[in-house]
Design a protein around this nucleic acid. Structure first.
Lengths: 266, 266
DNA sequence: CGGAGTGTTGACTGGACTCAATCGCGGTGG
DNA sequence: CCACCGCGATTGAGTCCAGTCAACACTCCG
């Protein structure tokens, strides 16, 4: 695999400059691409969280099934995202994951991820940065679910998707593909499919958002952002100064670990 | 400070056995107890996340203020919890934190925490375990906010508080103190204060929960759990097998780092 | 061509919000 | 000591957003 194709390296590079060793470690996590098809289940609730995945192509979502059979969609995964981190420290998965579209994913396993934490402090904090950004998105969604009417929920959802898709180059002139059914959007936003439909209708009539099947067009971004009262702070990629260890320190740490490997062992 | 008084050691011990060195590192994070009073602000939205806190006594909560002046409470912190981790990898705080009652907190700073990640792989995964359990609680709350009516939201909230308080020994015979106003409970559950009151009234009339000022009594736990459709999986303290590195490996790693310190330096 | 899934619309219902009035308690100052 | 004030809790009346149920249209496929 080329360095370009590595989803993880692209992700981590948003936060810091990686050493060559770090890159090699990340590459080792993406050795097993798998082709998956739309609606295919990737993980189930209750499974052991043995595996994690990166998405190279396609969309996915994580969800919880409730007692009454309804479903809550927790997160939409796009190409470049890491799937399953949520359950990393649990002995059982708390959420299932399924594909939305056809796609390609790469699997790596729990011991591999664990060893990354022990081998590279920088990658450990990198994973933490990624995980806490996922949590921030979740928090933001929660606030809208708790307090906002349907129009603002949907506006916020669409604007967030717009920004995430733009970041990976999947937006052209305010237009993008949104391969979710209204039912699924409802499950993500805590709305009934019927009401999602009505809300889209209102957007169409006021010219805020035009939607045709899976094709979404946003004539005026500012209008949508205003309606959503969108505050993008939580999508910021900045990390605190000093968050990553300077390169030379990390190099020294590596050498010492190699040293250990040579000496140590039972 | 005695080992007993260390909030962090108590927390981490729920997940793994700590080495002596690990305990010393954790103790170093709790050197500065501060007395704080009810309603006092601990952090503000937009601040740099320089400091983190452990709560030794008292209750606190984190929140976001919305454009229209309303507030969403994100999490209730109890004695033993760690405050501020949410913002660890961000350059600005996304949420404020304020005390609910008088209390005592210990501050440690960003570089200290960062160095912990680099000095002990076990403590790094321990912090991750704690952070992901906070995230799991958040997710669970979100699901209830999105899909459940007021009675189930409140029932779930009370049952979760019950379990968390029981874990720290603050429950006696199904009774505990809940020092939140109905207004604050509403801000946590996405309900108006008026409706929180009506819901408590319904609980009182059906005998599910009795509440007098800040004193809450739950006559029959099963009834409350059933009403809440409570699934406690997300409060489980189990971690996957192999999650923490066996003691001897970690010891060797430490020695090698000491070695580095002796040899290294710019 | 028919069936399944998705989208669209209307009519009705209901849970939760708002506004508003009242009550009870604790603190504070005359 | 008591009147006053402020905050939280309580209750009622009216409104509205969003859910449910139901019918129908459209599109994609087999």
């Amino acid at each position: 695999m080329s360095l370009q194709a590595s989803v993880l390296i692209r992700q981590f590079s948003q936060y810091c400059t990686l050493s060559f060793a770090d890159k090699e470690i990340l590459l080792s996590l993406e050795q097993h691409p798998i082709r998956v098809s739309a609606a295919q289940a990737i993980c189930l609730e209750g499974d052991e969280p043995e595996q994690f995945f990166t998405i190279r192509e396609g969309w996915a979502f994580s969800f919880r099934t409730l007692d009454d059979g309804s479903r809550q969609i927790l997160k939409i995964y796009l190409p470049g995202d890491i799937i399953g981190m949520r359950d990393f420290s649990f002995s059982q998965r708390l959420a299932g994951v399924a594909m939305i579209t056809d796609g390609v994913i790469c699997a790596f396993n729990h011991p591999q991820l664990l060893s990354v934490f022990h081998r590279s402090g920088n990658l450990a904090v990198g994973f933490i940065a990624i995980a806490s950004r996922q949590q921030a998105m979740l928090t933001e969604r929660m606030i809208y679910l708790a307090q906002r009417p349907a129009q603002q929920r949907l506006a916020h959802f669409l604007y967030e998707m717009y920004l995430r898709l733009k970041r990976i180059g999947a937006v052209q002139e305010g237009q993008f593909l949104l391969p979710l059914s209204q039912e699924q959007i409802g499950e993500a936003l805590g709305l009934s499919a019927v009401h999602v439909n009505r809300t889209f209708k209102a957007f169409r009539e006021s010219g805020i958002v035009l939607r045709e099947r899976h094709h979404v067009s946003i004539p005026n971004l500012k209008d949508l952002a205003n309606l959503a009262e969108f505050d993008g702070g939580y999508l910021n990629n900045e990390v605190p100064s000093g968050f990553f260890v300077p390169q030379w320190e990390e190099d020294i740490r590596k050498e010492s670990l190699d040293h250990t490997t040579n000496l140590g062992g039972p």
